[in-house]
Design a binder for these strands. Structure first.
Lengths: 337, 337
DNA sequence: TTGAAAGCGCTAACAG
DNA sequence: CTGTTAGCGCTTTCAA
C-alpha cells in the first residue's frame, strides 16, 4: 500500500495525497476530505524509509554508551531519548562494553546512513582512532575523556567536581583519603581527571597525597569496588575516607567494609560520583557528586541536531566544550544518620 | 557517493559493483579487485536506507520497556541488544513510562516501517488496545501480563516463582508474610500473578492470607517500596516477612525498616524479584527470584526474527506461550549473614 | 560473468 | 490549487 493506491482510490494524483499527508496548507477542504477518507479506508501509513531515502535524513540518532547495566548510563539514556523526542528524533541505543573495537566500530558508522548523528561516550577509544574517522554523520562526545578533535564535547568539570568531593571530606576532618578507581595499567585513562582533582585538592590543603591510598580497579562496577577496597585493606592501608570514581565502586567498597565490620561513616567516610538512585536507598545513603544528567542529555541532543541541520562538516566547525553543572549531595555516608 | 560513482571509477556497471559489495560469488578476481580498489579509493559505504527500501526490511527491531531507570529493564535491554546482534539486527529502544497512551502509540507503529518488529513489555495496555492494532510489524510481548491475543508471549511462570518465594519464607518458619506491590485501584493489574502466587502458597500450607498484610504501591521503584512499607508499619501491621513485587520495592522497604530500627532478617525476612545486581551489594544482600533474563531476551528476539522471516501475518499464527526458567537465589535477607 | 533497465515509495521542481 | 515527472541508492529480473 502506497501513496499510489490512496491516490487511485481518491481519484486524485499522488502529489495531492502527499500534500494531505504532509499537511501542505493550500488544499481545498473537499479534496482534503476525499483523500483523508481514502487514507482511512485503506489504513494507509507513510513509508518512512522511502521518505528518508528521499530526504537524506532518517530521524534517528544513535547513543553509544559503555554499559546499560550501569544505572548512570541507563538513566542518561532515558534522558537522551526524551530530549531527542522533543526534536522529533528517535534514539537507537548501542552499548560498547567499553571495548575499544566496539567503540571504533560505532564511530566508523557501521550503521552507515541509517543514523543522522551519534552521541558517544568513549572509554578506551584513542585520539588517533577518532582522527581517522571517515563516517560523515555528526558526532558529539560525552563523558570524562577529552580529545582535542573537532567534535563538541559535553561533560561536567570533572576536576572541580572531584575537588569538591575531597574538599567535603577534608572539611569533616578526614586526612587519609583513599581514591578508588585508578587504572594501574594506563594511568592517563578514564579516571584520570578525578584522580587529578583528588591530588589537587589535597595539595591545596597541604595534605600529603599518599599513593598507597590510590587503589586500582579492574572495571567500573560494584564488584570492582568491593575487590579494590578489600585489596586496599588487606594491604594494610587504613584510610579514614574514600572517594570513589563512581557510585557503583563506592557501593561495592561499602559492602567490603561492612563485611569487615568497618562502619560508615564512623570508621570510613565515603563519597561517590554519579548520584544514582540506588545510592539513596542503602542502609547508609551515599554522599555523591551529582552531575546534571538532564542537562548533559539536552546539550548533547541540541548540539547534534544543530550540526545535522547546519549540514556543516566536522572539520569546518569550531568544537565546543560544554560544561553542565554538578552538585555535591551530602548524605549519611559522610554525615552519619 | 553511490554505486554509480564507484562503477564509473572502476569502469564497470552498477550491477557489478553491487555484486562485489554483496559478495556475489561469480565474479572474476580481476574485476573484483578493480572494483574493490575503487571502493577503497572513494571510501564508499552502501546506503542502508536505500537497500532497506528496496528489500522491504530495515534490520531494526524496537524494544519498548516501561522505564530504563529500572535496572531490570536496563539489563534486559542489554541482553536484547546482544541477542539481536546475533541475528544482524540492531535495536531501537523506547520507554513508555508505563503509560497507556505511550504503550498504545508504540504498538500502533508510530515508526511506521522503519522497524521490522517490536518487543513490548506492557504495563497498562488493555487487551482491546491490542485487539485493534493495525500496524503489521510482528509483535512479541514480554512481561507478567497475559493477553489472549495472537502474539507470542515470553515470561517466566510468575505464579510458580511467587510460590517458590513464599515457600522459602514459610520453610524458614515465617507465618505473617506481607505482600508489597498490589495496585489498590486495579486489583487485576500488573502485580496480579505474583499476588495470586502468594495467596496460593499460603493456602496450600494452611496459613491464612491476612489481607491487612497486602500493601498497595504507587509505582515500582524504591521510593514506592519505602512508602508502602512505612504505611504498612504505621498502620500497625507486624509482619515477620515481606515478599515484594520486585527488588526495587524490596530495597525501598528494607530502607524503611532500617529507619525504624527493624533488622533484616531477624525481625523481618525479605524476598524480592528480578535479581538485580544491586541486591547483591547492600549491607544485607537480597534473597530474590531470578528470572533468566538472557533466555527471555533470546526467545523474544528469536520469535520476532522468525515471524519477520516467515512473513506470516499475526492472525495466521498460533501464538506461543514461552516460559524461560527462574531460580530462587537465597541470600542474607532471609538467611542472615 | 557482466550489463541495462525497472522500480521500491516518497518528495520537490516545475507546469498548468 | 493540483498534476507530471524525475530522481534518492539500491537490488533484481532479464539479456547479452
Amino acid at each position: 500500500m502506497s501513496l499510489k493506491d490512496v491516490a487511485e482510490r481518491a481519484g486524485v494524483s499522488i502529489k495531492t495525497v502527499s500534500n494531505v499527508v504532509n499537511n501542505y496548507p493550500h488544499i481545498t477542504p473537499t479534496t482534503r476530505a476525499k483523500v483523508q477518507r481514502a487514507i482511512d479506508d485503506l489504513g494507509y501509513r507513510p513509508n518512512l524509509t522511502a521518505r528518508h531515502l528521499r530526504k537524506g535524513r532518517t530521524g534517528i540518532l544513535a547513543l553509544a554508551v559503555p554499559e546499560l547495566g550501569n544505572p548512570y548510563f541507563a538513566e542518561l539514556a532515558g534522558d537522551v531519548i526524551d530530549a531527542a523526542a522533543e526534536h522529533d528524533y528517535t534514539v537507537l541505543l548501542d552499548h560498547t562494553q567499553g571495548r575499544r573495537e566496539r567503540e571504533l566500530l560505532v564511530t566508523q558508522g557501521f550503521r552507515a546512513r541509517v543514523i543522522d548523528g551519534l552521541i558517544l561516550n568513549p572509554l578506551e577509544l584513542e585520539p588517533e582512532d577518532l582522527a581517522v574517522r571517515t563516517d560523515d554523520a555528526p558526532l558529539v562526545l560525552i563523558g570524562e575523556r577529552r580529545y582535542d578533535l573537532p567534535y563538541d564535547h559535553i561533560a561536567i568539570d570533572n576536576i572541580a567536581a572531584a575537588r569538591a568531593a575531597v574538599r567535603h571530606l577534608l572539611d569533616l576532618g578526614r586526612r587519609r583519603i583513599a581514591f578508588l578507581g585508578a587504572r594501574g595499567d594506563r594511568p592517563s585513562q578514564p579516571a584520570h581527571l578525578r584522580l587529578l582533582g583528588w591530588q589537587a585538592e589535597l595539595a591545596a590543603s597541604g595534605v600529603p597525597a599518599d599513593e598507597s591510598l590510590v587503589a586500582p580497579v579492574e572495571g567500573w562496577d560494584r564488584a570492582d569496588g568491593a575487590a579494590a577496597m578489600a585489596a586496599l585493606l588487606d594491604a594494610g592501608a587504613r584510610p579514614d575516607a574514600v572517594f570513589a570514581y563512581n557510585d557503583l565502586i563506592a557501593i561495592g567498597a561499602m559492602r567490603a567494609m561492612s563485611e569487615r565490620g568497618l562502619r560508615v561513616p564512623e570508621d570510613i567516610a565515603v563519597v561517590g560520583f554519579d548520584d544514582l538512585t540506588e545510592g539513596r536507598y542503602g542502609a547508609v545513603t551515599l554522599t555523591t557528586v551529582s552531575p546534571d544528567k538532564r542537562a548533559i542529555a539536552r546539550l548533547a541532543v541540541e548540539s547534534l541536531v544543530s550540526a545535522i541541520a547546519g549540514g556543516r562538516r566536522d572539520e569546518e566547525r569550531t568544537p565546543r566544550e560544554l560544561q553542565p553543572g554538578f552538585a555535591l549531595v551530602e548524605r549519611e555516608s559522610t554525615l552519619g544518620a
